[in-house]
Design a protein around this nucleic acid. Structure first.
Lengths: 220, 220
DNA sequence: CCCTGGCAGATACTGCCACTATCTAGTTCT
DNA sequence: AGAACTAGATAGTGGCAGTATCTGCCAGGG
């Protein structure tokens, strides 16, 4: 398969394919001559995954590269999920607020809240996990807009998150035969979350409708 | 409060405050002279919300503006949740793939899947809802990387999403006294999702640890 | 009284990112 | 041979989110 054919097969412009190759997301084709290379099914697959990660998962090129690197390295080894999970960006960028003293207080409060949650859920997560850090940061930010969680509320959500995680793992086991381990991990971690988010919004939309007894769309 | 004080109170640079004002995210202060304006608590609040929406919610400036506009208009009226919900970006941008014919087939298949789900869940959501469209697009994309949902699997997730939505609404009712209606809606819709995402990742991390019986972090 | 420091509002500039285009030189098909 | 393609390198584009600068202008202290 020549590059132009690869392009046609995936709908990705040739220039973009070259770009991805440059950036190390896509392995080069097998060169058959100085100005010709052969691409295969593997490249089609990879290109599809790249597109899915960037459009559906919303990942940057840099992050996609990291994730794909993790995928490649974990292809055989165990712990693929962990490695990839840690490679994914935590959707919170700490924002240093005005008052330094207040800040420190909010910091420890949020961290304590997370620690308590982990304790309550009997989770084994180490405090060093980026997710733990991220969660603390998120809670802090929410407190700042007066939207902190009541004690116990967070645990209720965590319980549901656990159910989702269990479903995820079952699902992963179910397509064992179709997709390689590491790629399944990516799919579960990076590509399923938009689906979940949309389901949540749909459910919310619906709950609100139910409670107000209206079947029509809301007036904007 | 002068602009420099507003800046100090929120940790946002003066230049950025001016930028937000230009972009219509932040109302102008009350001018007391040609070169002086007075800002109040309202502005501090708003600035915090803007920061939360952009950093925590990951919204663009344009989207933030839309959301805030919806917030302002819905402040009194009902249907705030709906309006804001629709203003939020759907985390899927349809990507036209290679083959046009295959494409159409995948389209209708995905739409049917969503319709079936809505039917099964007894949801009242109109097919015109951006969430419905987005979900169909997301499913299509997943199919393309061989990660489609088995029949029934999606419904299981939807069930959990419903539970989350119910928790959300309870939570919203609980801080009725603290935050205005429309702002609660924003918080639930745009600001809580990172928390949920992180909880899910934590839960996954933990489930994997449990199943493999390891308490230490995964080797990268 | 006037000068210094800060302010409003407008405009221009910057850095980053994800492509996209162009150029050179070589290769294959017919 | 010549048109049509290819690889690889380099440069350019457009959008986004600020950041900086410039021009008056004015309040308050010495």
């Amino acid at each position: 398969m020549k590059i132009s054919e690869l392009s046609r097969a995936t709908g990705v412009p040739v220039a973009s394919i070259k770009y991805f190759r440059r950036e190390g997301l896509l392995p080069a084709g097998k060169a058959t001559a100085a100005t010709l290379a052969e691409y295969g099914e593997r490249h089609v697959q990879r290109l599809r995954l790249i597109k899915a990660l960037t459009t559906l998962g919303g990942l940057s090129i840099a992050t996609t590269r990291e994730v794909l690197t993790a995928v490649d390295q974990a292809q055989t080894s165990d712990g693929a999920l962990g490695a990839i999970s840690y490679a994914l960006p935590v959707p919170v960028t700490a924002s240093p607020a005005g008052d330094a003293e207040e800040e420190a207080k909010a910091d420890t409060a949020a961290e304590a809240e997370v620690a308590e949650l982990i304790e309550a859920m009997d989770w084994w997560t180490p405090a060093s996990s980026p997710h733990v850090q991220g969660l603390a940061a998120a809670l802090k930010e929410l407190r700042r807009v007066d939207a902190g969680y009541e004690p116990g509320e967070l645990a209720a959500y965590a319980e549901l998150a656990r159910s989702v995680a269990r479903l995820d793992l079952e699902r992963a086991a179910a397509f064992e035969d179709r997709v390689a381990l590491a790629e399944r991990a990516v799919i579960l971690l990076a590509l399923s979350s938009p689906v979940l988010e949309l389901l949540r919004r749909l459910a919310q939309e619906n709950e609100v409708r139910r409670r107000t007894g209206r079947r029509e769309p809301d007036d904007a």
